[in-house]
Nucleic acid binder design. Structure first.
Lengths: 109, 109
DNA sequence: AGCGGTACTCAGTGTTACTTTGTAGCGGTA
DNA sequence: TACCGCTACAAAGTAACACTGAGTACCGCT
């Protein structure tokens, strides 16, 4: 995929991660695998971890360390109230943009 | 508007400009005003000019200088074949992303 | 012991949109 | 004439973000 794809993800990926976490708590490696299955195939692992650090620092998630049978302990992230508010705002912004683009495509004069 | 909006425009704005030019040839100032009416209200003028420079250097548009009654001569941009191809690719990428987001929103497991 | 898979971390890079500032011509007004 | 506002373009510097690549570490299996 070209870099056009990559650039289009900016400002979107964070919302995507929040959306995944709204369904259930999860840890970084799991989220990466999940999103790759959902079509974000070229997603870099480091990218997800960077986002998780960011949303943790902004207090949008609660964090818990859970031992794993295979590999180092997992950092399990759970969406909190602030995170849910942020997610709602994300969907609002996204919808607005999508609507504007759609009307542009239809040659709306 | 917050910066969330701004970040989401990355990778999209260029396609938006191409879409405007696909309807008719236009110059920078005109495009800015047009997009502001279409809901991209906080769009900075300098941003559009930067994009126009970029797509001109990539050979996606033909350029013509036209005298204006008010102000300096206008640089009128016309979408060429390469530009139309790029626009088509943009819509493909956008649709793919929009579909993935939509399925995420619906809690697609 | 070595290998592959799991799981996280971090420094550095490139692209992009925004901000700010500057240049310049034109019409209108006092 | 002098000034102002609008049109029109240009360029330098900044911030945010996703990617790259490398590294650390733990486990089970052969």
């Amino acid at each position: 995929m070209g870099k056009q794809d990559t650039e289009m993800l900016k400002g979107v990926l964070e919302g995507v991660v929040l959306a995944v976490l709204s369904a259930r708590p999860a840890y970084g490696y799991e989220i990466t695998a999940d999103l790759r299955e959902r079509g974000f195939s070229d997603l870099a692992e480091g990218t997800i971890y960077a986002i998780l650090v960011r949303i943790e620092q902004r207090g949008l998630v609660d964090v818990e360390k859970v031992a794993s049978e295979k590999g180092p302990p997992r950092k399990v992230f759970t969406l909190n109230d602030d995170g849910r508010a942020q997610l709602a705002e994300f969907w609002t912004t996204w919808t607005l943009l999508a609507d504007r683009l759609e009307s542009l495509r239809e040659g709306g004069e």
